[in-house]
Design a protein around this nucleic acid. Structure first.
Lengths: 151, 151
DNA sequence: TTGATAATGAAAACCATTTCCAACTATTGA
DNA sequence: TCAATAGTTGGAAATGGTTTTCATTATCAA
């Protein structure tokens, strides 16, 4: 029953064991369609498997980030958020729209074609100029959401 | 000797007092050409004014961020970084290129014309679709810097 | 000057995340 | 099968950047 998910192989390729805890964490990330904090994941995992500790959540998330299976985001509100990387997710390529007042984060999938054009050009140019191997980018828009405007 | 800097008026417009501590902090930000942590600023301010405490640094930075005079960034390495907002800085519009290994952050000013085209389009579209008042955006590219590749 | 209000520093509290450590589990080779 | 080895785990404690508390001090308007 190994490798039933596409992440299994990749994880084991790095020499890590695919334990019950780790699969449970990946399951939660996989079933969520939004970014989760470590505590969100801890609570979700707990309902089916109360023995799994918060330390394991953090440790596993670190490995998953390292292997590129999950992406970690810091929206600037004190706690990191995690979501399955695009390659392993059923979500489309997206970015984030953040309300500076209520801290709400909206995932948007608009203007990806236009974005790709710009990002590709910039990536190639930056790789040449600064010698970086670029493998990722984030775009955040900040503003005030409609609810906070009227409220 | 008030309002000798363009930020002075804006800060006071919000009803905040322009004290010695606050001016010292703004001076440090103004003379730096890169993003600084609260501790960086604390140490810099200390050389000329040892009485100013770290608490004041944090409090002032919060006000400055709130008034839009400084921008706060979380590059994901545990400590927030601050820099004068574009409007008040002599730095050009720029974004960040981050090494995932050594955590170095490079400011780049390339492809701004192309970026602007995309960002403007996306901003207008997102404002219409989601009702946000967008006033800011960040773009981060992540990768491995040349030193970390060969090292 | 005076009185109201805002700003300050030091110490304590906070809180997400990491580290420690001893126990446990899976894999390997004999 | 059975160690031996290496990887994994949970809980408690430590960490470290940031925030809060509180008593004191500075600032501003009248």
């Amino acid at each position: 029953m190994r490798h039933c998910h596409k992440w299994g192989q990749k994880f084991q390729d790095y020499g890590f064991r695919l334990t019950v805890s780790r699969e449970a964490i990946l399951e939660v990330l996989s079933n969520s369609n939004t970014h989760l904090s470590a505590e969100d994941i801890y609570l979700a995992v707990h309902s089916g498997n109360p023995a799994i500790g918060l330390t394991t959540i953090y440790r596993t998330l670190e490995l998953l980030e390292h292997t590129g299976i999950v992406s970690k985001f810091e929206f600037g509100h004190g706690r990191a958020k995690y979501e399955l990387a695009e390659e392993f997710s059923n979500k489309k390529h997206h970015h984030h729209l953040i309300c500076k007042k209520c801290r709400k984060v909206i995932d948007y999938e608009d203007f990806i074609t236009e974005e790709k054009e710009y990002i590709t050009k910039a990536e190639i140019g930056l790789q040449n100029k600064y010698g970086f191997d670029i493998d990722n980018h984030i775009i955040h828009f900040y503003g005030i959401c409609p609810e906070c405007k009227t409220g």
